[in-house]
Design a protein around this nucleic acid. Sequence first.
DNA 1: GCGGTGTCGGAGAGCGCTCTCCAACCTGTG
DNA 2: CACAGGTTGGAGAGCGCTCTCCGACACCGC
Lengths: 352, 352
Amino acid sequence: MTATSGRVPVGERLPTLEDVARVAGVSRATVSRVVNGIRNVDPQLHTVVWDAVERTGYVPNRLARSLVTRRTGTIALVVSDSESHDDDPFMGRFFADPYFGRVVGGLMSVLRAAGIQLALQIVGTEQQRARLVGDLRHGQADGVVVLSLPAHDPLPRMLTDAGVPAVMIGRPADPVPINYVDLANDTGASLAADHLVGRGCQLVGMISGPADVPASSDRIAGFRRSMARHGHAWVPQAIGNFTQVSGEVAMRELLAAHPTLDGVFVANDLMALGALLALRAAGREVPGDVAVVGFDDSSAAVAANPALTTIRHPLEDMAAEAARLLMTRIDDATMRVSSVIYEPTLVRRESA
Amino acid sequence: MTATSGRVPVGERLPTLEDVARVAGVSRATVSRVVNGIRNVDPQLHTVVWDAVERTGYVPNRLARSLVTRRTGTIALVVSDSESHDDDPFMGRFFADPYFGRVVGGLMSVLRAAGIQLALQIVGTEQQRARLVGDLRHGQADGVVVLSLPAHDPLPRMLTDAGVPAVMIGRPADPVPINYVDLANDTGASLAADHLVGRGCQLVGMISGPADVPASSDRIAGFRRSMARHGHAWVPQAIGNFTQVSGEVAMRELLAAHPTLDGVFVANDLMALGALLALRAAGREVPGDVAVVGFDDSSAAVAANPALTTIRHPLEDMAAEAARLLMTRIDDATMRVSSVIYEPTLVRRESA
DNA sequence: GCGGTGTCGGAGAGCGCTCTCCAACCTGTG
DNA sequence: CACAGGTTGGAGAGCGCTCTCCGACACCGC
C-alpha cells in the first residue's frame, strides 16, 4: 500500500481503472466495485481505493462503461421531419419557434436531475431514419423522445418494431402502439368556440394548421363540433402552416370572403400574431370589430398588442411527463403502452 | 462463399462484424475495411462483404467504434449556468427564449450536414463542471460549444486547460485563450445611439442588461461612447435582466426619473417589449412621444406593436460559424486560437 | 531464376470497463 | 474439530470495434 500523498501521473494518457488499481494495490475489479458503490467492500479498502482515485485523478470512461452495460445515460430527442434538405429554411423556423425551446426546457427539467443528457437529432430522409433506428438498437441512447412533424411518419412504427423505448410528444398520426403525451386539442378548440360564441360573436371563422397533422385536425374537429352545438353548422376556414406570415395571409383571405366576420379562432399564437397584423391593416379593431382567440399561450401571446386571449398549452409539463414516462419505460421493459392527455384552459386577455 | 440469398439471422443479439465476416467468409478486419471504405480491397470481396452486410442487417456499433477511434461524432452544447437549482425557473425562461433556439438552429444547420449530433448539457455546480470536463477529456464528445451565462465562469478556462476543443458563443468575460464567435455589441449599440440622436431625440435613456456579462457591458459602453460623441455626456440608465417583465419595470423607473425622456435604447427585444407596455400604460405614444430601439431582431420585434426598430444580430450565422470553427479545430489540433466578430446592422421599423 | 517491391487479407492485440465465476477466508454450530 | 453458509477480492472473459503487424502472393527487372 502506497503512502497517502502526492499526485500519481500516468504519462500522457488519462488514468484508467488499471492505474488506480496499481496505485491502490488491489485488482481492477475491486476498484470498479468501489467506484460504482457495489456490494460490501471492506471499509478499509474502500478508503484506500478512493484515495487512489483522488491521487490519480481518475474519471471513469463513459464510453467503455456503456459498451458493456448497454446503458448510456443519454436520451435522444429526435425531430422527425419529412424531407427537408439541409438548406431548407424550415428547420430554422422550427428551432426559433418557442415550441422547440419549451419542449427542451421541459425535458431537461427532469433529465438534468437524473444526470441524463439529451442528444438532439434531426432525421429527414428514409436513410437517416434507418440509421437512427440502427444506432438506437445498439444502445446509442437509452430511449428516444420523438417530435414527429410529417403527417405520415414511418418513424414511430419503426421505433416500436425495433423495441426501442420511445415516447412521442403529440399523438402519432397513424395508429401505432407507442407511448405518447398529448394535449386534448379538441377540448381546447372547443373552449375557444364557447368563448367566442359566449361573447356574442355572430360569424366566427377559423384559421387552422394543415389538416393532416393530428394536433391540427383535432383542433379543427373540436372547434367545428362545439360551434355546431352552438347552432353554427358551418364555419368559414382558412389554412395556414403555423407561421406568422401564413396567419396574416389566411386572415386576409377570410376577411375578403367574409367581410362581416366578427370572431376568429386561430390554431396557434404565431399565426394569431399574423392575423392581428392583417386585421389592423384592414382597419378592424380587436376585439371591438373582430375577437381573436389564439392557441398555445406562448410568450408571443403576452407580447402581442392587444394581448392575446388564448388556449394554454402546458408544453413544459407535457415534455417533463414524457421524460418521466420514458425513464420508467427504460427501467421496466414490460411497461404497457400508455398515454397521458393534458387538459387545456382558456387564458383571457384582451383580444377576445 | 455462401449463396447470395435470404436473410441470415443471428439469434437474439444484433449482428456484429464477426457475424458478417462469417457469412462473407472473410476476416473481421476485411469487413471493417470494406465498411469503412479503407484501402484497396479486392472489388470481388468488396461485393461479397456488402452482400453479407445486407443479409445480416449489420449496423456498426458506434460506441464500440468510438472507444477505439476516440471520435464520437458528437458535439456537446454546454449551457453553463452559475448556480441555479433544478427547480430554478431561470432555465425554463432561457430555453423558451428564442436565443436558445436560434443557436441550436444555427449549429444544426452545419452539424446536420456533417452527420454530427448535438448533445445538450447544462452545468451549474462546480462538481458538474468538473465531471463534464472529465468526460470530455475521455472523448465523450469531440468538441464543445459553450454558452456561458455567469459573469465569472470558470468553465472556459477549465476547458482550455484540459485541451478540449471548444468554442464559445459570445466572448468570455475573463481573458481566456479560447475560440469564440461574437457580435460587435458596441457597434450595435452605437448604431442605436446614432439613429436616436439622428431622429432628433433630446433626452435618450437606456435599459441595459446586467453590467457584468460581456455582451451587456459592451452594449453599455458602445452606447455611452456614441452618445458622448453626439454631445450627450450623460445617459440615464436602468438595469434589467433581459426578460420582458424586467424591461417593463425598468421603463417605469426611467420614466419616473426622467419624464421628458423622448428616446430609449433597450438592450434586447424582450425587454423592449416590456418597455413598450410600460410606455403605453404611461400614455406615451411610440415613436411619437418616445422612440424605442431594441436589440437582437428576434421574432418578437416584428410581432410587436408598433414593430420594433432594432439591431440585427445574425445569431444563426454566428452559431453556424462556431460549429465550423469547432470542426476545424477538431480536425487540426494545431489551429491557433481565433475569434470571429460579426457586424450588426440597424433594422428600421416603426418604433423609432 | 531470384531478390526486390507492392498489394491484400488475416491474426491478434488492444480500447477501458463490467461482471461472472471461483478461491480464500471467516464465522457459527452440532 | 469438521463442515455448512456467508462474505470478499481476484482472475479473466468478454462488450464490438480498429489497426498494426506480418505472411502470402503477384509482378517486375536483371
